[in-house]
Design a protein around this nucleic acid. Structure first.
Length: 629
RNA sequence: GAGCCGGUAGCUCAGUCGGCAGAGCAGCAGACUUUUAAUCUGUUGGUCGAGGGUUCGAUUCCCUCCCGGCUCACCA
């Protein structure tokens, strides 16, 4: 390929290209493709399929991509219909007498079930099985994720009725096509047609089809749509897949391709589809919980003129008309508390945050966080609220407060329990137990630093006592924080927005929740003393001057808001991506984010991107706004 | 940023101690009227990530680079 991995399409715009999946259809830079078609045709399979599209056009008055098909039922509708009547659990119903389909063909060997309605169903073909004069198609539609459970429920009903379980937990629904019902369509889609624009079968795995017919069961008991013409062809090809799907049995394994081409992953990997739906269920239940508890959902700015609300490095962008720098938000906290000042009292935001830091299994540059604030509540109330929320969400999306998560050292499955109450530990107690420090050593920075060094815990040079204690605690405690655990007793100098403890002035009224060894939540009683808040901001400025590039900036408007008086308030953040990881038994944040951040696909920077890079954060949409490299 | 592992057909993967590039699935052709990873027969398809070196000969050995995964570090 001469080292280049880009081509110039007919508009002259450069764009990276990944090939059919990885590299097959990459352009030859010495012979640049003049059209997408020319480039795709470098691959035999795609050339064939493009020719099939021409065949479709010839067949359907020039229309290869019709848009007039309207499904009346989903696959889940169908399975529910089959389970709704014990008679429909039977495997096979013989044709009622006196219903020949045409005088010229023998009667079919099966019949639709009684009361089966005329049905139109559509979806993507993921398997084709042609057997002589009949064909079976496996179809995926938007309800695919529900089908395994519906099939298990049907098995239960069959068992109760004295029938054998079928154990077919596929996410697909079956179309059955007998040639005699519509020979022309059958032959064109499944058989070679000499003399046609494309002589081979027109239908491929991956195509989207619409079928009409009547529901019935095959001899093996499979709920199916028996395709029959009904004011049109029995089966129509609605959208051709030019690119072939990955192999049906192994699917798409390459993690990079699964994340980059999530659209393929979602088609061929049931687990990817299930994760996407479960994430949606988590968000739905979270919203329901707060809506039911008197909160309102709000949206606050994602472009911040002043950095604040968390300790993190930001992305920078720029507003051209105002000629001003902006930060993509690292946390919505300060805006949400302004709303509490304004009297909204109970607010929550499910928000996207952006942090310009490394990528890992647990970190994506943009991530989703739930933050909620409740007036007249303390961190103790928030502990109750978080326990109630997580228990409710776990039950709603998994059916139980105990969820499987990972394996132990012996390879045995482990269980996370969200049953209340969760365990609680303090930072001081954790350091005593797990860092082998004495009570009188805890508050000596040099001793804590020395112990951290002995235990292999690297501390930043600018770390003060509080930061050193927290860092060392997290280092030694994380192995012990598998089950959901509230960590309490945070030092004041690591928590510039939290209220000081009334009884222990060096500490703040704050907790973090850990589960599966990772931080899930961070919450505190909010600092609502504007004078104290101003001084804490000043300390952050000092920290920044000492080299802490995550320290916050002075937010004078936030202080002004506090000057108007904020009711005593508790606030909490929960990492939604990580919560979804726990509830889907996955150990990588990339599995629960549909499109996780990836390096650019093209090997070399494209010219247009290179220009943006040089412009830096002065160009909207340039690397300063969207990249992190 | 460091260490380890990897890149072979559209997909999933073998393989070559340096000597004509392999399988299954997908595709194409044939048989098959209830299959469900259908089966059976035949068959197309490859710049073995890129570049350079050693060699009579490199997909294989060496060097450099690109891309990815995992672990570590930073981080929520």
């Amino acid at each position: 390929m001469g080292g280049a991995s880009r081509f110039w399409c007919s508009t002259g715009a450069p764009r990276p290209f990944l090939g059919v999946f990885r590299r097959q259809a990459e352009p030859n830079p010495r012979q640049p493709a003049r059209s997408l078609r020319a480039m795709l045709e470098r691959n035999d399979l795609m050339r064939q399929r493009l020719a099939k599209i021409d065949g479709l056009r010839a067949l359907h008055g020039g229309i290869a991509y019709p848009n007039d098909f309207r499904p009346t039922h989903s696959a889940a509708d169908a399975l529910r219909w089959f389970a709704a009547d014990p008679q429909r659990l039977n495997a096979f119903v013989a044709l009622p007498e006196g219903e020949p389909m045409s005088p010229d063909v023998p009667p079919p060997t099966a019949a639709p079930l009684p009361q089966a309605p005329w049905t139109a169903m559509a979806g993507r073909v993921v398997a084709i099985n042609v057997k002589g004069k009949v064909a079976f198609l496996r179809i995926l539609d938007r309800t695919a994720v529900e089908l395994p459970a519906l099939r298990r429920a049907e098995d239960d009903l069959r068992e109760a009725a004295g029938l054998a379980r079928r154990e077919q937990d596929t996410a697909t629904f079956q179309f059955y096509f007998s040639r005699e019902t519509d020979p022309d369509t059958f032959d064109r889609l499944f058989k070679p047609t000499p003399g046609a624009a494309w002589e081979g079968p027109l239908l491929d795995v991956g195509d989207t089809v619409g079928g009409v017919g009547l529901w019935f069961r095959t001899r093996t008991g499979e709920p199916s749509l028996w395709l029959r013409p009904h004011g049109g062809p029995a089966l129509r090809l609605l959208a051709k897949a030019v690119r072939p799907l990955p192999e049906k049995w192994h699917g798409l394994q390459d993690k990079e391709l699964r994340h980059r081409q999530r659209y393929v992953d979602l088609v061929v990997n049931d687990a990817a589809r299930a994760t996407a739906f479960r994430r949606a269920a988590v968000l739905r239940e979270v919203r329901r919980f707060f809506d039911d508890h008197g909160y309102i959902e709000v949206e606050t700015p994602m472009m911040h003129p002043v950095l604040g609300g968390a300790a993190a490095r930001p992305f920078r962008t720029h507003h051209n008309a105002l000629d001003m720098p902006l930060f993509l938000r690292i946390a919505p906290e300060l805006y949400l508390k302004r709303l509490v000042v304004g009297g909204l009292e109970r607010v929550y935001e499910i928000n996207r945050n952006f942090r310009n830091e490394g990528l890992s299994q647990r970190h994506n540059p943009e991530f989703t966080m739930l933050e909620f604030y409740r007036a007249y509540a303390t961190w103790h109330d928030l502990i109750d609220e978080v326990e109630a929320l997580l228990a409710k969400v776990a039950v709603a999306v998994t059916g139980a407060t105990s969820v499987p998560y990972g394996v132990d050292a012996e390879g045995q499955p482990r269980t996370l329990s969200f049953a209340r109450p969760f365990r609680r530990v303090t930072i001081r107690q954790g350091l005593l137990d797990w860092a082998a420090l004495d009570e009188d050593q805890l508050d000596d920075l040099a001793t804590v630093r020395r112990r951290a060094g002995e235990l292999g815990c690297a501390l930043p040079d600018h770390a003060g006592l509080g930061k050193a204690q927290v860092e060392l605690f997290e280092h030694v405690a994380q192995p012990h924080l598998f089950q959901p655990t509230f960590v309490m007793g945070y030092p004041a100098d690591t928590s510039p927005l939290a209220r000081r403890s009334d009884t222990e002035p060096g500490l703040v009224d704050r907790f973090e929740l850990f589960a599966a060894h990772i931080e899930i939540s961070n919450a505190f009683s909010e600092l609502n003393d504007p004078v104290d808040q101003y001084e804490r901001f000043l300390l952050q400025l000092d920290a920044k001057a000492r080299g802490d590039d995550e320290a916050m900036e002075m937010d004078l408007d936030y202080v002004r808001a506090l000057e108007y008086g904020m009711p005593p308030t508790g606030g909490c953040g929960i990492g939604i991506d990580r919560l979804v990881m726990l509830l889907t038994n996955t150990d990588s944040i990339r599995e629960v984010i549909l499109f996780p951040h990836m390096r650019p696909e093209a090997r070399a920077p494209e010219p247009a991107l290179a220009v943006a890079d040089e412009a830096g954060d002065r160009e909207p949409g340039g690397a300063g706004a969207v990249g992190n490299r």
